[in-house]
Amino acid sequence: MKEIVEYTDYRKYIQDYYDEQKRCSAFSWREFARAAGFSSAVYLKYVCEGKRNLSLGVAGSVANAMGLAGFENTYFVLMVSYAHAKGDSAKRAAFEAQCALARAHKVHMLGGDEFDYFKSWKNPVLRELAPHMPGAKPLEMARACEPAITAAEVSETLNLLVKLGLLKRDKNGNYRQTEKSVSMSRVDAVSMVASDMQRQMGELAIKALNLPLSERSMSGTVLGLTRKSYEQIKKEIVSFRRRVAAIATQNDKTERVYRLNVQLFPMSKALNEKFKDEGTK
């Protein structure tokens, strides 16, 4: 069975625990439920199947029944807390609590690094900028950012990027990227915080409207689409982004860091069949 920090879904952890015990003994859902204090012999089975929810009030008892203690016990309860969180801010806070617990015990948590990386626009910008400013002090990098940030923010960001293994510092104090790109894990909390970064980048795009036309390229069009054509355009966008990334990596030299936003979003509600039929006449 995997380490508990490799799980983000408490139901999956319970199921894997049960399966492992079952392989080694005559373990049953009835025995498991009794150890956790449930009168229903199949309650935990229903939890794993998504038919019941595990409340925070009994999460500790289930953790104890699985022999979890100390850090692992607390981590399991936090997984349950994350599942119960309503809204992005509450889920973000719950996941950050899991990350903080993992860091405090010096263990690597699934999705934790990506979560930290996608929290701020400064992380991808300085990951691109720092390797191309050898010998630069944090204040110089701070002034090179658009918008400008503080030297303290640069130092904090660079330390995080080195810690996450996304930048490496050589003996001369210069930085280089360890990988050409950063991929996003499938952990729900990472997708959520990545969406927040999209919002940050959108706000920066609005401010960039004040730049001269020679320094920015912004355009858009309003389209009437079917679901099929929408999916086709999504595929074209993915292909386009890949071609852009290939162009960017053709030359190791960087003169300026740019952000490319490609957005396709609805500006009306879905039309019902009556209106769609009328529109084709």
Rank of each mutant, 00 (worst) to 15 (best):
E31R: 13
N210A: 15
V162Q: 14
R242W: 00
A69K: 13
L204M: 12
D277I: 04
A63R: 11
N73P: 03
L166C: 07
I247Y: 12
S268M: 06
S183A: 14
T178I: 11
L204T: 06
V77Y: 04
N210D: 14
A93E: 15
Q98K: 07
S239Q: 05
L167C: 05
D116W: 04
F95G: 00
F265V: 14
L158W: 07
G202T: 14
A248H: 11
K180D: 15
N73K: 15
V80Q: 11
A63N: 14
S25K: 09
N261F: 07
E255N: 12
A100M: 01
S195P: 02
T8C: 00
A36F: 05
E215R: 14
A102Q: 05
E255R: 07
A246G: 06
H132Y: 09
F32L: 12
L160I: 09
Y75V: 05
R23H: 06
E231C: 02
S55H: 02
Y7K: 07
E3T: 09
F118S: 04
T150F: 02
R227N: 12
G112Q: 01
C99T: 06
Q198P: 00
L56K: 07
S120F: 06
L160H: 08
R186Y: 11
K171M: 11
K91D: 03
C48F: 05
R176C: 12
G57P: 01
P212I: 03
A41G: 11
E203G: 06
T280Q: 13
T74S: 15
K51H: 15
P134Q: 08
N272Y: 09
Q21N: 15
G202V: 08
N272F: 08
S183G: 14
D170Y: 05
E273M: 05
K2F: 03
G37K: 06
I237N: 06
I237L: 07
S195N: 12
D88Q: 13
A189M: 01
S40R: 14
Y13Q: 10
E6H: 12
F115Q: 01
K253L: 00
I149W: 09
L204S: 04
Y13E: 09
L110F: 11
L260E: 04
G67R: 09
Q98S: 01
A93S: 15
S239K: 05
E140C: 08
S214P: 02
A59W: 02
D19A: 10
D188W: 04
T178F: 01
E156C: 10
E31C: 12
S81V: 05
